[in-house]
Computed example of a mutant assay.
Amino acid sequence: MIYKKLIKKLWELKKNRPIQYVIGKAYFFGMEFIVNEKVFIPRPETEELVSWILQDNKNTSNVKIFDIGTGSGCISITLKKKKPEIGHIHAIDFDQETLDIARKNAELHNVEISFKKVDFLKDSISFIPKRNENSVSIIVSNPPYIRLSEKKLLHQNIIQYEPFQALFVPDEDPLIFYKKISFWIKKKLTGVVYVYFEINQFIYLEIIDFLKKIGFLNIKIRKDFQGFFRMIRAVYYIDK
């Protein structure tokens, strides 16, 4: 029986299925996460994004965090695990099966996260109440950002097995998720909002220009461990 299972897994690997999907788990910040083809495999560059948030926010007791496009839940769960004093984390995704995996991961690590099914491109996050002008929010998102024309640059195992909707955006509007999230922030939130985005290194200047034009301040960009511009942090001050 063990031999048959081993042969099956070796055959899957031979067919380019990512090892994380073959064994059903991936590691992020040294923590184990359940994964399958419904969720994007956590990446080292996303660990760097989470590290940036942790470094910046030493006092998080009165901060609310919104993880938009949570996938496996690795960002939300790691933040809550490393900073248990965080008041509340809302983790949002459009797919119920994806959220089911994220919930299992939250249970695995014994953290409390509020998971919500929202198709962010179609629906607003209406369940979040407006708060006072002294409130502080952190928005973190690793949204789809690979243009369809860049598909040829990816390894075949990514194209074959990882969820299409977690990867690609149309060439004619590659900032679609950044725009939607940013305009939602302006419309729905109050107080000080810190935004942390993982980004496409080929269009980082367009993202910076967009954030500047709509009023985001203190924009910082960072390279990942491979030397690519991969992360942006910005601040928005909202008085209502």
Rank of each mutant, 00 (worst) to 15 (best):
D239P: 00
F228H: 15
N200S: 08
L167Q: 06
I208M: 10
K83Y: 02
H155I: 09
F28R: 09
I221P: 00
F29Y: 15
F33K: 09
V39A: 10
P170Q: 07
T70E: 00
G71K: 03
G227T: 05
V193S: 04
V136N: 08
E112R: 09
E37S: 11
E162Q: 12
Y194G: 02
L205S: 14
E32K: 12
L148D: 06
I65C: 01
L10M: 15
E85Q: 13
A166N: 03
K220W: 00
K151S: 14
W184H: 09
S51T: 14
P163K: 03
K25T: 04
V22W: 04
S126V: 14
G73N: 08
K82D: 05
I181A: 09
I207C: 09
N218M: 08
I19R: 04
I128Y: 14
L54Q: 05
S51A: 13
K240Q: 12
Y236W: 01
D224W: 13
G215E: 03
I125H: 05
G69K: 07
Y145I: 04
I139L: 03
W11M: 10
R233V: 00
E133S: 13
V39N: 10
N157I: 05
L205H: 11
L217M: 12
H109N: 11
F202N: 12
A91L: 04
K186H: 12
W52R: 10
Q96T: 11
K122Q: 11
Y204I: 06
S182W: 09
E162L: 05
N105I: 01
P143N: 06
I238Y: 02
R230Y: 10
I125W: 13
I92N: 07
K122M: 10
K186V: 00
Y237V: 12
Y27L: 07
P18H: 05
G227H: 09
S72K: 09
Y161F: 15
Y196T: 07
K5V: 10
S137E: 04
N200D: 14
T78L: 10
K130N: 11
V169K: 00
H109E: 07
A91T: 01
L189H: 11
Y27D: 04
L211C: 08
D93T: 03
